[in-house]
Design a protein around this nucleic acid. Sequence first.
DNA 1: CACATACTTCGACAGTTCAGAAAGTATCTA
DNA 2: TAGATACTTTCTGAACTGTCGAAGTATGTG
Lengths: 107, 107
Amino acid sequence: MAKDETDRLARMFKALSNPNRLKLFMNLLEESKLDLAKGRTHDCFLVKLLGGLGDIGAPTVSHHVKELADAGLITTERDGKQLICSVDPDGLAALRAVLATSAFSST
Amino acid sequence: MAKDETDRLARMFKALSNPNRLKLFMNLLEESKLDLAKGRTHDCFLVKLLGGLGDIGAPTVSHHVKELADAGLITTERDGKQLICSVDPDGLAALRAVLATSAFSST
DNA sequence: CACATACTTCGACAGTTCAGAAAGTATCTA
DNA sequence: TAGATACTTTCTGAACTGTCGAAGTATGTG
């Protein structure tokens, strides 16, 4: 595997290495699941995420969202006052691909 | 998802968040694939890994190996003077499971 | 036992990260 | 325009990380 590709993956893993960021990302994964049932791919904004993360403040959540976005795991877009976060399917696929690279069956 | 479970996963992702550790782990994944063809599940020791990592020294590799082991991603056992490293199938399965938790198809 | 190999542990240090406070920006609503 | 909402930016500090050199431990060889 090329160095660039390794570094890109390491960056994704790093983005998920903080419990609060991982929760945030997993919330989005869950949201995506729910929303597909409603015929949409996602719909989650920062204040809503904030509530699910316990005690951490807005500046910190904002920072974490940016880290996930920079890593290519989520995308963001502004809708009026709110920031809409979505899972980036390409990033998710890249992670799945690297973990699938092995002889151990994926059951 | 429970806090403990989130923390455990975050720890695994953190173990893979360093490029050298990620290379190390991916070497093991590849080794596993090769060795299965030979009828064994794994076989990789530290000095061999060291060569594949470029410039980093033995103390650093030793440290990284322990981090991967502590995270539950690999297991180690001593064989004479050498330390044999193997992918931990349970850890790998846990990572795959969390990334599979979504509406995005796994194709 | 002496010596080499293959890590492991310790101590140090530069660099990074996480979280919050305070101040700033962008977007509604009236 | 004034005020509220929803982030964002900047700064700060405590804590953690990655790497190394030096010293230490465990194992095999002669």
